[in-house]
């Protein structure tokens, strides 16, 4: 199956080359979406002749990822994998991630940090609680279980690529899309994520709380405005 790895990149000049190199062993196609970086990321992509798409405006994570899905749709890829450009997602898990799609057991596969104990995954109390609340809310709305609602390490089959290339949320894309395609078969596989090697994580306790409250609001508005039965 033709597989594409989508790597959003915003100011990742220190880690983007390493991330792409880690994919070489996996023998999959990739595309880096440079989301209007203000550092030397674009230069790194050009000098190393990497496969990249440069966005003139900074669209944010949702807009960048959707560009990758549009590229995957245009190029007729069967599977599209999202992978962060900061090196936290481990390319060795790609095989595990695409297996359920190859076996036609899932439309979307999420690399989950909570199925097995991950010694590298360190997060704040608020962030853990936030993810737990989102997961509980999701279960309550859809009757289905997703433990890692915020994981950005995901693989999508052709039907989901089609949906995402047409409609993808620009804010809080992971939890919101989990809800919008809850009628599809979503499976989690255990992954371990690497520690961030370069740069600083921008997540603070306040941001975690703000994120969670916003996602809950998004969920409520989406449910009311669409009037769909998510348990159907």
């Amino acid at each position: 199956m033709k597989t594409l790895v989508i790597i959003p990149c915003y100011n990742e000049e220190e880690s983007i080359l390493e991330t792409v190199r880690s994919l070489e062993k996996e023998k999959v196609d990739y595309v880096v979406i440079d989301d209007g970086s203000t550092d030397h990321s674009l230069q790194v992509l050009q000098e190393n002749h990497l496969n990249y798409i440069h966005l003139d405006n900074n669209l944010g994570i949702g807009g960048a990822i959707q560009t990758g899905y549009k590229y995957a749709r245009n190029k007729n890829y069967d599977i599209a994998i999202q992978m962060d450009g900061d090196g936290q997602h481990d390319a060795r898990y790609i095989k595990e991630l695409i297996k359920p799609i190859q076996q036609k057991k899932a439309n979307l596969v999420i690399g989950s940090r909570f199925l097995e104990k991950d010694p590298n995954f360190k997060s704040t109390f608020f962030r853990r609680i936030g993810i737990k609340i989102l997961s509980t809310l999701y279960k309550w709305i859809t009757g289905k279980t997703i433990k890692d609602m915020t994981s950005g390490f995901r693989a999508a089959d052709r039907s989901v690529i089609e949906i995402f290339s047409k409609d993808y949320p620009y804010e809080y894309p992971e939890p919101v899309t989990n809800l919008s395609i809850s009628h599809k078969s979503i499976v989690e596989v255990p992954v371990q994520m690497k520690k961030r090697e370069h740069g600083k994580s921008s997540i603070t306790p306040w941001k975690s709380m703000y994120y969670m409250l916003n996602v809950i609001l998004y969920f409520i508005i989406i449910i009311i405005s669409r009037g769909e039965d998510y348990r159907a």
């Binding site: 798409i53 966005l55 590229y71």
Partner: peptide
């Protein structure tokens, strides 16, 4: 519309 145009422009440039 701006997001869509930026994406389509980038894909076309590619």
């Amino acid at each position: 519309k701006i997001i869509n145009l930026t994406q389509e422009l980038a894909l076309l440039k590619k």
